[in-house]
């Protein structure tokens, strides 16, 4: 048989084209990509060893301020470590925590949301109640409590954040599932004898993935802020590992005489979070047909 030309998923292509047409979103996506590359290739990019202390460079100002030097672009912290290099390494923590938490949370959320929305009944009641309870706690206080129980550390930070983060995709998935399960193609699959597992994973999931991806991207910015907050409070990764949140915290004591110690990691958080947010808005506009004119 002559093979038909591979049918392009033109919906996806149109969405992609629409996203590419949004210049601001595209620029933001490039910024996010740069941060990711920076994190991956940190050892190659960083001009200095981020852990090397040098008391002679204690609170050395940025290069363009008097007393600065170009090898230490953004100045040094209280232990004389290069801030620029530490920001580059800190990106590893932020992005790793953000991605891992989101992947974990989205995975759990999809399973919980599909089960809740498709199976209904007691499964839905139990999952929805858990979601309601978790949503009732303020996020940061919840995470602080967990961290206090489990102790600081990278793995624990991821657990503490994913522990609650999954309820967001779960709610989105449940809502979308409730709408899609009523469509006739789902009923058709049932009429053909398909199992609930097949229906949830093969019929429903592919059709609700776009909003989930969009929401997860938006939430990633949030998770990065939360990680920084926990690190700022000293509940995150432990010194000497560089984390943007703990760097901001370190600079607090010298904010008047050495503003650069806190400001530059703070700006890094701001820039990455802003870029993710703008890019995800663009994604939403492109993938949500309601925003197509």
């Amino acid at each position: 048989m002559v093979a038909a030309p591979p049918a392009a998923d033109s919906i996806f292509r149109r969405n992609l084209a629409s996203f590419m047409g949004n210049r601001l979103a595209l620029a933001s996506a490039v910024v996010v990509l740069l941060f990711v590359l920076m994190a991956i290739f940190a050892p190659l990019i960083a001009p200095q060893d981020p852990y090397e202390t040098d008391l002679f460079r204690r609170l050395q100002p940025p290069a363009w301020v008097e007393g600065g030097e170009w090898g230490y672009l953004l100045g040094c912290d209280a232990l004389g470590r290069d801030i620029f290099s530490r920001i580059i390494y800190g990106a590893r923590i932020s992005i790793f925590v953000g991605l891992t938490v989101i992947v974990l949370a989205t995975g759990i959320g999809i399973i919980a949301g599909l089960a809740s929305g498709y199976l209904r009944g007691w499964v839905d009641i139990i999952i929805s109640r858990i979601v309601d309870i978790l949503l009732g706690f303020p996020y940061l206080i919840f995470a602080i409590g967990l961290m206090a129980m489990m102790g600081p550390g990278l793995g624990n930070i991821i657990l503490a954040l994913a522990y609650k983060e999954w309820v967001i995709p779960a709610r989105v998935v449940r809502g979308e599932t409730l709408a899609v399960r009523e469509l006739e193609y789902v009923e058709a699959a049932r009429a053909l004898g398909a199992s609930p597992r097949h229906i949830m994973l093969k019929e429903i999931l592919p059709n609700i993935l776009s909003p989930v991806v969009v929401v997860s991207t938006i939430r990633m910015a949030n998770v990065i802020i939360l990680e920084a907050s926990l690190s700022f409070l000293g509940l995150g990764v432990q010194p000497p590992t560089a984390s943007w949140g703990s760097m901001v915290s370190d600079g607090r004591a010298f904010i008047l005489e050495a503003w650069w110690v806190s400001t530059f990691p703070g700006l890094a958080i701001l820039l990455l979070v802003l870029a993710i947010n703008v890019a995800s808005q663009g994604l939403r506009d492109a993938f949500d047909p309601r925003f197509h004119e």
Binding site: A7, D9, I11, L183, E184, Y185, E187, A188, A189, A191, L192, G193, A194, H198, E203, P206, N207
Partner: peptide
């Protein structure tokens, strides 16, 4: 078996014709 009214809602937009029509063969 059943044939539905709405030719738009009754076919999964993310599946090819071969997958849609071949599904019963696979399931059974």
């Amino acid at each position: 078996q059943i044939i539905f009214q709405d030719p738009y809602a009754s076919l999964n937009p993310r599946r090819t014709v071969a997958e849609i029509v071949g599904l019963p063969l696979k399931l059974h």
